[in-house]
Design a protein around this nucleic acid. Structure first.
Lengths: 208, 208, 208, 208
DNA sequence: CATGAATGAGGTTTCATTCAT
DNA sequence: TATGAATGAAACCTCATTCAT
């Protein structure tokens, strides 16, 4: 089931990819020089070309590797018996934690989304949005068919809103301490909880 | 009322800044060469250095200029007599349109938020999030005091959620046609409307 | 009696020349940029070109001005009645002090001597060596004719030796504290006195 | 016995250093472009940066290499049995020839002495003045203890005078034909002989 | 598998100089 | 008399890449 391009990476190559991932995530493609990668990896520049055809090829490998890492994590966790509400909350939180646990990958792919690289970043996008996205859409559709969630709103938009909240929180997280109005949201779990509350119940006061 | 750093830009300098804004937005800082800026501006490379101390200084000028542009736009619009619900909808849509109308600036500042440039991007962040953010917080707090919006959710988190939805939509917009599940959301107004619906009423079916 | 090239310098031009003299002396011709001169002079670069045809012309003006300064100083002092020995001592010391008092000029001309600029630096050389040189030669020849100084040694070589000692001391002066063997020579007058002693009486012990 | 910084120069690097030595000696640091060095060395500019971190590093390597060359030469020559007078004459001449034989190095270091580079040029200075200097001081002190040379004059000042004469002659040599008074001194040996005569016996006529 | 030597192209920056005002 | 705007050329340096070993 190994695709053509996924030839197993040797130990040396993997080391390079790991470092490259960090640097590409931090400084972007053109902000990262092979020199820097070589120096930090402790290998020679020439060695990079020994393992990868060129910079672009290395970059693509990094992206592919990154995607794999990200999607791999969350297969097991599921709890089909709990109420819809809890399931959504749980999924949302899990997605958020996923973004943070794969910080470099996330940044990498967010960068990629801002570039005009055509084809390539679409599949990338799927990975941040991503696995969860599809699954949440399914989950919601089920809930809608059971009349637990409003039928008027397209499931995809709901899923998207959830992802949006998480991704944005990820992007903004490091500035939070600069916004005193947002104090309390620094801890992802707290934010996620409040966000889910909004998502589920809206903000209007429907008391009467 | 001119601040120290805002020395009026001369015509020549402004021309350079305008072009640079586009290129920096499209390709990022290190992906944009002064060569390219010079060529597209129709001036010599040396002339850029006549107007700006170095590439970084030009970049900062672009950012500053960008922030100014963005915050300037939306002062007038207000409609204090309409119901809270409509006001929020209206604000949200306006914010979204703002992001699209100032595409370059928005991209520029989103890029900036991903970099680790300390201080600098905090003030930048304020500008995308930004003006609206503060105002919406006020609006919501008012509504909360009038008991029209739930008091249990912090106004700031609500505002943030709104901004999140818009910014994320901006980022993802160009991929939308690749996600058939999301068809219908390609037009910002449609998306905004659906998103406001969720924000205001939540997704749970509270009928009974 | 004004030569073609010595058209009186205007106040503005003179200011530039003064600054340029310092910078050229410190960093040499190619180490000194018109930018630096302009900035330190508090005038615009363009203004330099207003006063001087180009960098070279400014440099030549500086050299000319420098030479004038240097040769002008010592006309008056003479004491024809004192013994030959004292006269030589006095001249030697005076020459040395001259070098120090016109530090910039001296450095400028020493630099010039090391360059391969043909013609030009010959006349420059005369100015460091210079005025004194000719005069000392005359003085010594007189003394020789009076049999007070050995006829076997050419007057010019004697004069040259004197200049050599002084110039070298000037060049080496700032390193003296690093050579503990030479302690005591830091004060020019002391050095000059010891040097004259050697020059006049040699170092051999002729007692018997 | 290899010092940290003296990592053996590879063939390619050495070639560059050799050419750079000539050019730096001729035109000074800022008067010498890496372009020129590259062209004359027959290597690419980029290759220079492969071997040296930057222009400054190349320059320092040149200086270090130069110092080594200069100090290495004269170890063997010694003739402890000849009379003091002859020994001094011989040393002086040898030093002078040394300056000429290592023309580039000498110019390089003389340039360096005129710059305000702090630390660096002190050690350089030692090399021109240098080896000989210390040895001559020793020689003279011995002669003084044997009462062959006046005890009243510090050995260091005597040595310095000797070096002064030689260095100055080196600096002035190329102008000599322009000074008719100095004819006869164009040949270093002749000059050295006359200079030693003065140094040893002074210029006063002590006959009676 | 790994590296040092080498390079052409292009990057940012500085230079001396011109010109219109 | 003085300057800001503009520039071509050249400075130093970095980049991704190739090749022989």
């Amino acid at each position: 089931m190994t695709l053509k391009m996924e030839e197993e990476l040797t130990e040396g190559a993997l080391r390079i990819v790991k470092i490259a991932e960090v640097l590409f995530a931090e400084h972007g493609y053109s902000g990262t020089s092979l020199n820097a990668i070589a120096k930090q990896s402790g290998v020679s520049k020439a060695n990079i070309f020994h393992h990868f055809e060129n910079k672009e090829a290395l970059y693509l490998t990094v992206l592919r590797q990154a995607s794999k890492e990200m999607s791999g994590v969350l297969d097991e966790i599921r709890n089909p018996n709990s109420p819809t509400e809890d399931q959504i909350k749980q999924y949302s939180l899990q997605h958020l934690m996923n973004l943070f646990n794969n910080k470099n990958v996330t940044r990498l792919i967010l960068r990629e989304m801002q570039e005009d690289n055509g084809q390539q970043n679409v599949s990338m996008a799927r990975d941040v949005l991503g696995e969860h996205f599809t699954r949440v859409v399914g989950l919601i559709e089920t809930a809608q068919s059971e009349n637990k969630i409003k039928n008027t709103i397209p499931a995809a938009v709901i899923a998207m809103t959830m992802v949006a909240g998480n991704v944005f929180y990820f992007q903004v997280h490091k500035f939070l301490d600069q916004f005193p109005e947002l104090s309390g949201a620094e801890v992802p779990q707290n934010y996620s909880s409040a966000f889910s509350e909004i998502l589920l119940n809206g903000i209007l006061n429907n008391k009467d």
